[in-house]
Simulated assay, not measured.
Amino acid sequence: MADLILHHYPTSPFSEKVRLILGYKKLAWKSVVIPSIMPKPDVLALTGGYRKTPFLQVGADIYCDSALICDVLEHLQPTPSIYPEPSKGLARTIAQWADGTLFWAAMAHNLGPKGAAHMFAGAPPEAAQAFGEDRKAMSLNMTRLRPADAAAAYKSYLRRLSDMLDDQPFLLGQVPCIADFSAYHPLWFTKVRTPVVADILEHTPAVLEWMARMNAIGPGTMEKFDATSAIAIAAAAQPMAVGRGLLRDSTFQDDHGIALGSRVSITAEIFGPEPTEGELIAATRTHYTLGRTDERAGKVHVHFPRIGYALKAVAPA
């Protein structure tokens, strides 16, 4: 089995979600720190267009989106499970809510005027401007909550999480599951990256105690690595065969009338409009796989979760 290489940056909330799962499963991993904003030439050499953070590399296989990365880590190390029975379906549903609705309310609160000023205190004015322009481009045609509305929603969501913790240490029981890891990371950003607006957490002490339990899991065994070496690993490897890698389902599920082998593009439905183009290698009930070739990374397979991503045929040039 090739090394797990996580391409991330320290203050990325979705990266914190994955780092904690790596720690929970006691998996060793290599850390490639990537830029938080464009340009990202080393990222695009591997993904072909996708530029959100994080993504996971295993040899010449590139796994995009934290939801899919979680499935990969579960297949690689089934115990302890982040999808424990009998609440697996509920856990996934809460996680999807947390990665979307909760996350965007939290971040609109975090990055209001007070939080943004704290984030960029001491940085040149152009740094804040570049970050703002980058995230504006990523959220094209997306409705964003205003800070006041976000704060009201965030408080409500925190109370709901607190209610879930009335008589148990984690959201769905005695051990953490995917719901915990997904709900934790936007709150972690509030506390760690924008502490000047973290007083919102103080109204729910049960949530703060749960956050301390989650934080204690830690990120596991990490080794610093660099992007050039990661790209070289991809170039020297071959992508895993469909159905024999870390995504076990391989049955073709055709909901688009697009045949395997077609030239297609895959784009996130909400955030991050940059498409990735390639040959459709797999379209299963859970994921898409594109085959593509890069002059630096060689032949790679880029994998996306089915939920949250749009598949389209690309007309011949």
Rank of each mutant, 00 (worst) to 15 (best):
L90G: 00
S265I: 00
D99T: 00
E202T: 15
P10A: 01
D226F: 05
W97Y: 15
R144D: 07
A45M: 06
G220F: 10
L158R: 05
E209F: 01
V192Y: 08
P273L: 01
D42S: 12
F120M: 13
L172D: 02
L111H: 11
R92C: 02
G261V: 10
S66T: 15
C70T: 14
A108E: 07
R19F: 08
L56I: 05
L246R: 08
T286Q: 07
S139V: 04
R248K: 10
P125K: 04
V43K: 03
G245E: 06
T79Q: 14
C64A: 11
I69G: 13
H75W: 05
T204L: 03
L145T: 03
E85N: 05
A315V: 14
K136C: 00
N215A: 15
G257T: 05
M119F: 11
T204I: 08
A313N: 08
T194R: 03
L165K: 13
A151I: 01
A128N: 11
E74Y: 04
H8E: 15
G243F: 00
A108M: 09
P219E: 15
P195M: 04
I21Y: 03
H7C: 05
K26A: 14
S31D: 14
H8K: 12
T251H: 09
T190R: 06
V58G: 11
H8Y: 11
A297P: 02
T79I: 06
L171F: 02
A236P: 06
V33W: 01
W210T: 02
K88T: 14
D134G: 04
L201C: 08
M164C: 13
Q253W: 04
G272N: 02
I231L: 10
F170R: 13
L290K: 09
M38I: 04
L68A: 09
W188D: 15
K52Q: 12
D42E: 15
I21L: 13
D71Y: 00
G298H: 06
K191G: 04
N215Y: 12
K88V: 07
A152K: 10
A130W: 11
S162T: 10
A108L: 05
I281H: 10
V242G: 08
L44S: 08
V314C: 01
A137I: 04
L158N: 08
M138E: 09
R285C: 11
T47R: 06
A67N: 10
L187I: 12
L20T: 12
K52V: 07
F103R: 08
Y288P: 02
D163W: 10
D71A: 06
K312L: 00
A151F: 02
D249Y: 00
H301A: 13
L260P: 00
C64P: 06
A117F: 03
S81E: 07
I281Q: 12
M164P: 01
P84W: 00
L161D: 08
A151Q: 13
L20F: 11
P80A: 07
R244V: 02
A121S: 13
I21E: 11
K136M: 04
A317K: 08
T286E: 13
